[in-house]
Design a protein around this nucleic acid. Structure first.
Lengths: 169, 169
DNA sequence: TTGGAATGTCAACAAGGCTGACATAAGCTG
DNA sequence: CAGCTTATGTCAGCCTTGTTGACATTCCAA
């Protein structure tokens, strides 16, 4: 079926591409993503917020003044879905929505002081997890980690990711 | 991992641990996980199934004859949540539930021929994505990728992951 | 024999996706 | 200016998938 049928494909060393290796990578992604989200989830469950709020807060912090439409593209959800989240964040005073100056149809999103404080708590926890993982795996591993993840993205997402990366560096 | 850079916290040896680096790693995980699940999601949306069904099918294939309780621990959901998924899979003839012989309270889960066929479709798609990513990133990157992911897991999940890995290798 | 473990099921609920429909304001174009 | 398009918001309803709590059944083990 799927086990141990790799063989030597035209003499190359493709041992890392066996089905078993790939399956282990798949399961590693599954279990690691659980760890990746665990700490922010724990912080948020006390409040009336969830992972969707975290994502919105993260990217508003990352790209202050972003428009709703831009955030929509980054998050890959519908405007109705995002709007439900934004409405509560604005009502709770964590996010501010300012009418655009050049184009008054647009709303530009910013974190308030309270929003920035929550962002800090959440990202501190997530960065601590990432830092420990990086430290345990070593600097050589980090490059490989990032390269595989980037190659795994859909090309459109990779463009979004790269744009964000370069704006922050 | 290989050099003695853990004594000197002050220099530029720890460039890979800057907040900006960590944040890029966080965003890479976010965008990559979207790609990771995209192909199976597309296959499943035509049927009445979702990601939860995929996960159940994956791990039943991986550990045939697993008990419900064992699967519960792997997936990290409640029995009610899993049961809803299993019920539909059994009703649709993709999964078979056999009463245990040693302990008749236990149910052992197996994929039927139809279940194995769907599993194959789903994992082919997901492995293809993983294979392309591995190929693009290169064999050295794969080791780093796996090491960081393993270090990112909660320790209990890491034990589960390792047990599965060793049973399949 | 009795307690507890493993399982299944029902009901109710919440988060967070989705679609469709519609409203409003504002920019753009002929 | 008129009319189309764009950006946003909102209402209503649906789906999947997670949660609790309660309760029944089966059956191993002390």
């Amino acid at each position: 079926m799927q086990d141990g049928r790799q063989g030597q494909i035209s003499g190359e060393n493709l041992l890392f591409l066996t089905d078993e290796q790939l399956r282990q990578g798949i399961e590693a992604m599954f279990f690691a993503y659980r760890g990746f989200t665990a700490d922010p989830d724990r912080i948020l469950e006390d409040m009336a917020y969830g992972r969707a709020h975290h994502r919105a807060i993260h990217f508003i912090n990352r790209a202050p003044g972003t428009t709703v439409n831009n955030l929509l593209n980054i998050l890959g959800v519908t405007k109705q879905s995002l709007n439900r989240v934004l409405r509560t964040l604005i009502a709770d005073g964590l996010v501010e929505s300012r009418v655009g100056t050049a184009d008054k149809r647009e709303r530009h999103l910013f974190l308030t002081e309270g929003g920035a404080a929550l962002e800090q708590r959440l990202s501190d926890a997530q960065r601590a997890r990432m830092r420990d993982a990086y430290r345990a795996a070593g600097p050589e591993a980090v490059g490989g980690f990032r390269r595989v993840l980037e190659a795994m993205m859909d090309s459109e997402m990779r463009r979004t990711y790269t744009r964000l990366k370069e704006s922050g560096a």
